[in-house]
Design a protein around this nucleic acid. Structure first.
Lengths: 299, 299
DNA sequence: CTTTATTATTGCGAGATTTGCATCAACAAA
DNA sequence: TTTGTTGATGCAAATCTCGCAATAATAAAG
């Protein structure tokens, strides 16, 4: 039993079983007729019984040969299909991809990348999941997602990450707010203002980052109110209870009840990175990152 | 594409995919570890992409490798099963057999052979078909049946046949018939008797044979009446309208309303042969013939 | 930090396998 | 009888495969 036949040998038998003629079969196989004869002989020897009944003038399938043919007729096709399926995955044209995203990537960065990726790789099924930055780090570690759009920067020896955007932060104020007299705002202008921010549980990383930024400038944030969603937050701002700070990608979605002004300061930016495990060698990940990095700049 | 892998190579990959360790896999395969490495390398080269991601310390399946594994996990099992199925047929332990029989084989010869054959080859399904001798010759020629129990002898260059029985012929008479005074009958005793036989359409070959036998003795048959089935025939005999001739195998089935006497003459016998096409190399046929030839003599 | 142990890979020569060419034996058709 | 076609076989060259030994990478242990 040590000598299992090759797929080519099985293929040879299938051809002979169809042609019932060694010379023609050998021709189809681009093989010498004697070699073909020997392949069949060896195959028969390896399984222990005759598959073909042959005289010098005629070749016929034995009953066992018929059964063997019927059972293995599609073996090669199946094998070829298994290769094609695997190849599509290897080339990143199939398989699946689980992508996590946080709020700031939800409006522009993630959708446009996913749209373009799906166009290029229609056979890859993409699963999207809203997870906040901290949760994404756990999800990545546990291999629950393949990629995460998170607030950056993020440096870690086990992960790769590329910075996809560094957006200007904007101050969001009620209409007719005093700050609007200036066309652009500096961080120090916000020192005395009441801030309305998302609460810690929901806006964790963003709050942390903002704190760091202001502290670096020697400014202590005065958070007067908290809300857990954007709509509530905007309502409070519009009502004149304070101001808030949002990255550029979101301000296009704000209503007309508030005004915005950019914060002019090289450090006051919101950075979004795309992160994945270094040990994740999936070709789909590579392909997606490629797409995400090279998105055409939005006017 | 000319280098299709061997089944052993595929097997090797499956093992490695399970073990995720070349050394252990090589051990399971009774193969040097370097040879295993090369098999996998060659396999990957033949399909054009990597199946395994390996460092010197760890082996992991690529996504493509996972897909390839899943698709081919049962390839070897299926192949092994295809061999087993074919082997059973090759050994005559499976497959199918179509057997035709005529009346004289129906009571003893065919049933006992079939019974014994099915016991030895339970996986062969046997299809039985009542066909008269002439019809069997057509059925065999058209490959509609594999074997035929027919009235013999039958000689033909394209067919094999073995004689299974040569039975004494018996005269069947009404009770108290004059012929019963003799314990055994000679053919000439029948010269003046009224005979009742099966009609030509239903009893074709038997009638032909009987005619030949009597003619060879210079006796012209006087067929007084014809019937198309045995029961009607016996009824006519019992009613005293004539006598008839049956082979030994049937007289045990006759009722008590008639008497029988053997015909003592070396040529006056009914021969039953089992016939099959020489071109039919089915192992089941061979096996059945073997069984049929070597049936234990009945009592 | 060094040593040790374990891993997969690579170089190489011996042996086995496969191939193509030439030839043969069987047999059908002319 | 001749001719042509079939599958099988002898043989030598090319190719492939294997096992042994050595190597490089790296994790674990001292």
């Amino acid at each position: 039993m040590s000598n299992a036949p090759g797929l080519d040998t099985i293929h040879s038998f299938l051809i002979v079983a169809e042609e019932l003629n060694f010379r023609r079969s050998a021709e189809r196989l681009n093989l010498d007729q004697s070699a073909l004869t020997r392949r069949i002989q060896k195959l028969e020897h390896s399984i222990g019984f005759k598959l073909l009944e042959r005289t010098t003038r005629e070749v016929a399938l034995t009953q066992a040969g018929q059964s063997f043919y019927k059972d293995n007729a599609h073996l090669l096709t199946r094998y070829a299909e298994s290769i094609e399926g695997a190849r599509r995955i290897a080339e990143g044209k199939a398989g699946h991809l689980r992508i996590a995203y946080m709020a700031f990537a939800a409006t522009e960065l993630m959708p446009s990348a996913v749209a373009r990726f799906r166009q290029a790789h229609p056979h890859v099924d993409v699963a999207l999941q809203y997870i906040r930055t901290q949760g994404q780090k756990l999800a990545l570690a546990n291999d629950e997602v393949d990629l995460g759009y998170m607030i950056g920067p993020f440096e870690h020896p086990d992960y790769n990450s590329v910075m996809l955007s560094s957006e200007t932060l904007y101050v969001v104020t009620p209409l007719n707010h005093p700050l609007l007299r200036k066309f652009s705002i500096s961080p120090t202008d916000l020192a005395e203002q009441d801030l309305i921010l998302g609460d810690m549980r929901e806006w964790e990383e963003y709050r942390r980052r903002l704190n760091d930024l202001f502290n670096a400038e020697g400014i202590e944030l005065q958070v007067g109110l908290e809300a857990s969603n954007t709509l509530a937050l905007l309502g409070l701002v519009a009502a004149g209870l304070g101001i808030t700070v949002y990255p550029e990608s979101l301000i296009g979605f704000l209503g007309r009840s508030v005004e915005v002004r950019p914060i002019v300061h090289s450090q006051f930016r919101s950075r979004t990175v795309l992160t994945w495990k270094k040990s994740n060698h999936s070709e789909q990940v590579r392909a997606f990152v490629e797409v995400a990095k090279n998105l055409p700049a939005r006017h």
